[in-house]
Simulated scan of single mutants.
Amino acid sequence: MPETPPITKPRRRDLTLLGLAVLLAIGLVVVLVVRQGGSDPEASSSPASAMSAPSAAEASATAPIGPLGDLARRQADDPMALGSPTAPVVLIEFADFRCPFCAQFGRDTKPVLIDRYVNKGVLRIEWRDMPIFGPESMSAARAARAAAAQGRFWEFVTAVYDKAPARGRATLTTEALRGFAATAGVPDLARFDVDAASVDFDDAINADLQEAQSLGIPSTPAFSLNGEPVLGAQPTDVFTAMIDNLAAGGPANS
Rank of each mutant, 00 (worst) to 15 (best):
A212V: 04
D96Q: 06
A148R: 05
I132A: 01
S55T: 14
S139N: 15
P6D: 12
E228K: 06
A212H: 02
A247P: 05
S44Y: 15
N206P: 00
A63P: 02
L172E: 08
C99T: 05
F94L: 03
R12D: 00
F201V: 06
L209V: 07
R12Y: 03
A149G: 07
F156T: 05
A170P: 04
F156Q: 03
Q150D: 00
R191P: 00
V118I: 09
G37K: 15
P135L: 08
V30W: 15
D40C: 04
R74H: 13
P79I: 03
S55D: 10
F223L: 01
D129E: 15
P235M: 10
G66W: 05
R74A: 06
V34K: 13
D77A: 14
R11P: 00
D208Q: 07
T220N: 06
N226L: 03
R12Q: 10
S60Y: 02
A72C: 11
T171E: 13
P221W: 01
V90T: 15
P54Y: 09
L177R: 07
L225P: 04
G66P: 00
D162T: 14
D108C: 09
D203I: 13
S84T: 04
L177C: 03
L32V: 12
A148G: 13
D108G: 09
P88M: 00
P85G: 03
F153Y: 12
D202L: 09
G69Y: 05
T8C: 05
L225E: 02
R167S: 06
S44I: 10
M80W: 02
P47K: 11
D208K: 04
K120W: 04
M242F: 05
S60R: 14
L91I: 02
A241M: 08
D195C: 05
A147L: 13
G19L: 13
S139Q: 15
A233C: 02
A56I: 13
P64E: 08
A159H: 00
V22L: 11
S254N: 12
P54I: 08
G250V: 11
G179D: 12
G121T: 12
D70C: 04
V199P: 09
G27L: 15
D96T: 03
A43M: 11
N245S: 05
R116T: 12
S44C: 01
C99E: 05
S224Q: 07
G232H: 07
L91N: 04
